[in-house]
C-alpha cells in the first residue's frame, strides 16, 4: 500500500472513535457553554434569558473562587510532592533484593484498587476520627491530645487521603523504571567515588526523569478533578477551607441551584485545565522525546 493510501486507511479506522469522542465531549461542552450565558436558576424559574458575561462575573468575583483556585493548586502540588518523593523512596526500597518482595509489591498496589469514596470513608471514620480513629488512639497512647484532622486541617487531610491513593501508581511506575537502570552504571559510579546520595542525584534521578514526567502528567489530570474524597469527608468545609474548583461548581449548581453560574465555573475550569495540560504536555514532550 502506498503511504498516502495507508494514511487514508488509518484515518478511516480511527474515524469511529474520533466521532464518538466528539459527540461525547463536544455536546456537553456546547451545552455548558450555552448555559453559561443564560440566566438559569432552579429556585427561580421565572428568571431567564441571555445573561451576557454576568454569570462569569458572578463566579469570578465570588471570594470562594479565589480560595478554590488556591486550594486546587495546593491539593495538586501537595499530592504530587508526596507521591513523587514517596514513590521514589518506595520504588528504591522495593527494588532491593529482599525476602517476600513479590508479595510486598502486590500489597503496595492494593490501595489503587480501592474506590475513592470507600477509601475516603475509611480514612474519615477509621483513621482520622478524633473519637475512635486509629490516629487518635495512637496520640492518646503517646499521651497527646487527638488531632481533629478533618475540622482543623481539612485540606491537609484531603491531601493525605488522595496521596495515599496515588502513591501505589507512582511507586509502580518508578519501580519499573528503576528495574531498567543498568547495574554496571551504578557500580561504575561506586568505583568513581559516588556515595549513595551522589548516586541518587547523578544516576538514579536523571534515569527516572521520564517516569517522573509521566507521573506528574497523569496525576495532575486526575487530581485537578478530585471530588468524591471532598464530598464524603469535609464537604468542602469548614467554610471553603477544603473546597476546590470542581467542588465549588457542584456547590454552585446543586446547593445554590444556580445552573448558569455553575456552567460559567465549569467553562472556567475547562480553560484552566487546558492551560495546565498545554504546559504539562509541552514539558512531557520535551522530556519524553529527549
Amino acid at each position: 500500500m502506498s503511504g498516502y493510501r495507508m494514511k487514508r486507511a488509518a484515518r478511516l479506522a480511527l474515524a469511529p472513535s474520533v466521532a464518538l469522542l466528539i459527540v461525547g465531549m463536544i455536546v456537553p461542552l456546547a451545552t455548558t457553554l450555552w448555559l453559561s450565558f443564560r440566566y438559569y436558576n432552579l429556585m427561580n424559574p421565572a428568571l431567564g434569558g441571555f445573561a451576557g458575561l454576568s454569570n462569569y462575573e458572578f463566579f469570578l468575583t465570588d471570594p470562594a473562587f479565589a480560595q478554590a483556585i488556591v486550594n486546587t493548586i495546593l491539593l495538586v502540588g501537595g499530592v504530587l510532592a508526596i507521591t513523587v518523593a514517596g514513590g521514589i523512596l518506595l520504588g528504591l526500597l522495593f527494588d532491593q533484593p529482599m525476602w517476600g518482595r513479590g508479595m510486598a509489591r502486590l500489597l503496595v498496589i492494593a490501595p489503587f484498587f480501592v474506590m475513592p469514596t470507600v477509601s475516603a470513608l475509611v480514612w474519615k471514620n477509621m483513621l482520622m476520627h478524633p473519637g475512635y480513629g486509629i490516629f487518635a488512639w495512637v496520640a492518646m497512647k503517646l499521651g497527646l491530645s487527638p488531632v481533629e484532622w478533618l475540622s482543623n486541617h481539612p485540606l491537609l487531610s484531603i491531601i493525605l487521603i488522595v496521596a495515599w491513593q496515588w502513591l501505589p501508581f507512582a511507586t509502580l511506575i518508578f519501580l519499573t523504571a528503576l528495574q531498567s537502570l543498568d547495574h554496571e552504571q551504578q557500580e561504575a559510579a561506586r568505583m568513581d567515588g559516588a556515595g549513595p546520595l551522589d548516586r541518587l542525584v547523578y544516576i538514579i534521578l536523571p534515569h527516572l526523569g521520564r517516569a517522573i514526567t509521566v507521573v506528574i502528567l497523569m496525576e495532575t489530570i486526575f487530581i485537578l478533578a478530585i471530588f468524591a474524597e471532598i464530598f464524603v469527608t469535609t464537604s468542602g468545609g469548614p467554610g471553603y477551607a477544603s473546597t476546590n474548583l470542581p467542588y465549588l461548581i457542584y456547590v454552585q449548581a446543586l446547593m445554590q441551584f444556580d445552573v448558569g453560574a455553575a456552567s460559567a465555573g465549569a467553562i472556567i475550569a475547562v480553560v484552566l485545565a487546558n492551560i495546565v495540560a498545554i504546559f504539562a504536555i509541552r514539558l512531557a514532550g520535551r522530556n519524553l522525546t529527549a
Binding site: Q185, E187, A188, M191, H207
Partner: peptide
C-alpha cells in the same frame, strides 16, 4: 574497603557510561 578507596579504576564490558551526561 569501599571501591573508591582502593585507588583502582574499572572499565566495564558495557562501558557503563552515564547516558544523560
Amino acid at each position: 574497603a569501599a571501591p573508591a578507596r582502593r585507588k583502582l579504576a574499572m572499565v566495564f564490558q558495557s562501558y557503563a557510561l552515564y547516558p544523560h551526561m
